[in-house]
């Protein structure tokens, strides 16, 4: 894979795009008034693209996946979220009081999971990325976002998400195993080797025995030995 592709992930150019939440009848006028202004300029990054997708899914598809009470809770949070976003200066000076409700996080996670199970990896990734912005201190969320990125074959992004996960929780083995595979896909053998070494180290120190992890490590070892 050439480097041009690798970097295109973080420097994607997207033309001006309108996000429309008009179809959602549940949302309040606050959301309408805010979203009508949403006009993402050109040079939108991959990150912004994912968040755009996440908002679209939540506001268009929530009824397909969530109970009525969960929808209400989600919409209340989104409304609050977007109301604050309406005025950036206000937001900077007055941080949001209290975090997003757990039920909202659960709702987003539920849809993300369903999307993952139904192999709609791009959608799942977008929702997990949104979750990382809401609970950035949760290593598990970063790890899940990384797995979704990996299955979406967004390998460079996956390595960054896994890096975040492993930084927050150094005992996790998954980020290292997945990163090793991602680096292999990116033709970065040296990096793949380093991740494999770390994964092996964690595996040896761990009392748990996961045959799938062992199988993955054997596969990695075999591939790396061939390249050595």
């Amino acid at each position: 894979m050439d480097k041009g592709y690798i970097y295109s992930l973080t420097h994607t150019e997207t033309n001006t795009k309108q996000i429309s939440f008009q179809q959602n009848t549940e949302t309040s006028t606050h959301i309408h008034s805010a979203t009508n202004y949403v006009n993402i300029e050109s040079q939108t990054t991959e990150f912004k693209k994912h968040l755009t997708i996440a908002f679209e899914i939540l506001l268009k598809e929530e009824k397909s996946y969530l109970e009525k009470s969960a929808i209400e809770s989600l919409n209340n949070d989104l409304k609050r979220y977007l109301t604050h976003l309406e005025n950036i200066i206000y937001l900077i000076q007055h941080p949001i009081n209290g975090n997003i409700q757990k039920s909202t996080l659960d709702s987003i996670e539920t849809i993300a999971k369903i999307k993952f199970e139904s192999e709609q990896y791009a959608d799942s990734l977008a929702l997990y990325i949104l979750l990382t912005t809401l609970i950035p201190e949760n290593a598990d969320i970063w790890c899940r976002a990384g797995i979704a990125a990996h299955e979406n074959e967004s390998y460079e992004l996956a390595t960054r998400l896994f890096t975040a996960a492993s930084t927050l929780d150094q005992s996790l083995i998954y980020p290292w195993v997945y990163s090793a595979h991602s680096y292999l896909q990116l033709d970065l053998l040296f990096d793949a080797e380093a991740c494999y070494a770390k994964a092996t180290e964690i595996s040896l120190e761990s009392s748990e025995n996961d045959p799938l992890i062992d199988n993955a490590l054997r596969g990695l070892q075999s591939i790396l030995q061939k390249h050595a």
Partner: peptide
């Protein structure tokens, strides 16, 4: 083997 193992790990973890 590696790719398949990762797919299964991912599914299990997500569940």
């Amino acid at each position: 083997q590696l790719g398949g193992a990762l797919l299964l790990i991912g599914r299990a973890l997500m569940a």
